[in-house]
Write a protein that binds this DNA or RNA. Structure first.
Lengths: 158, 158
DNA sequence: CAAAATTAATTTGCGCGCTATTTAATTTTG
DNA sequence: CAAAATTAAATAGCGCGCAAATTAATTTTG
């Protein structure tokens, strides 16, 4: 195979190369973060998405399932069982809203609030592992945010 | 100290904000890509990870499961059932290596090769949706690649 | 050469994440 | 006000993604 100059046979062929693709770079980075977080979160019996829910609740306690879903970009099909597990782990409480029984209010327990102090340590460890300057982090974060917005396109602009 | 100006009580509190986190930006962008790809890939009955496997095989046909796993950063526990589905869909073939019966060689069928032509259309659509210049894409891709490498840390340097 | 160690792939079990569907409560409307 | 439409959560089913255990083949070693 590949006898003479197989490496540059078509040009557009190059564009399909795995290593060239932004989507694959994002996909890989997401997995890398997951793997980096895992040992740190295992200590608390948390998964990464569960940790994200706690991050959201540390910012704003007492949110409905729907509101949390808007913050994280997840639907109730994902959040309902996840929140049950967070409740079973003792980090949050779930209670129907008395004013509107359709809604479920999720709030932090004392245990959930206590965990916030530990989170700074996790943040520091990940920051070190990423080895990025604050400047770099800011740039990438904003670029990714713009990308996400554009990809979401017409579906929903907040 | 905290009582009065609750918004900036600690400074490091800000750092935990969901919107500030690079990891969340990556997580969200990965989901946004997935959602953008879904309608395009549904036409072919493919999921995004399955599409990644095909991308890898279009670059280099006839790889072992292990090799594909190295390309994509996935283990056999993920790939084995995924490859079975790709085979059931008629895009690849799986066959034990006669020289080493432990290994399974995955190769493209004619249907799998034919799909490559369609992939350029998908690439174009996603490229348009992302709305990035080639320059931007290159920069972000390389920055993410460096980030991924650093996060993977000592676990495995290829 | 036979036992032990290593390797490749599969399988099992669990937690996302999505799509539908269902259930229940609230709002709209006729 | 009652029927219809909408809304919020929960549920079921499927496909990743990972860890751990299993099976089978190969390599190492004693």
């Amino acid at each position: 195979m590949t006898t003479k100059a197989a490496k540059f046979d078509s040009g557009s062929d190059e564009a399909l190369a795995l290593g060239q693709q932004l989507c694959f770079a994002v996909y890989s980075a997401a997995h890398a973060f997951n793997r980096a977080y895992k040992p740190l979160l295992d200590r608390f019996g948390l998964t990464y998405p569960q940790y994200l829910v706690l991050l959201a609740l540390w910012q704003q306690d007492r949110m409905t399932v729907k509101r949390i879903g808007e913050e994280l970009g997840l639907d109730s099909g994902t959040l309902s069982p996840l929140l049950k597990r967070l409740e079973a782990a003792g980090y949050v409480r779930r209670a129907r809203d008395a004013a509107d029984e359709r809604q479920v209010i999720v709030s932090l327990t004392q245990g959930g609030r206590d965990l916030k102090a530990e989170a700074f340590g996790i943040l520091r460890d990940i920051g070190n592992a990423s080895g990025c300057s604050l400047e770099e982090v800011r740039e990438m974060r904003d670029a990714l945010h713009r990308l996400t917005q554009r990809l979401a396109g017409r579906h929903q602009e907040s």
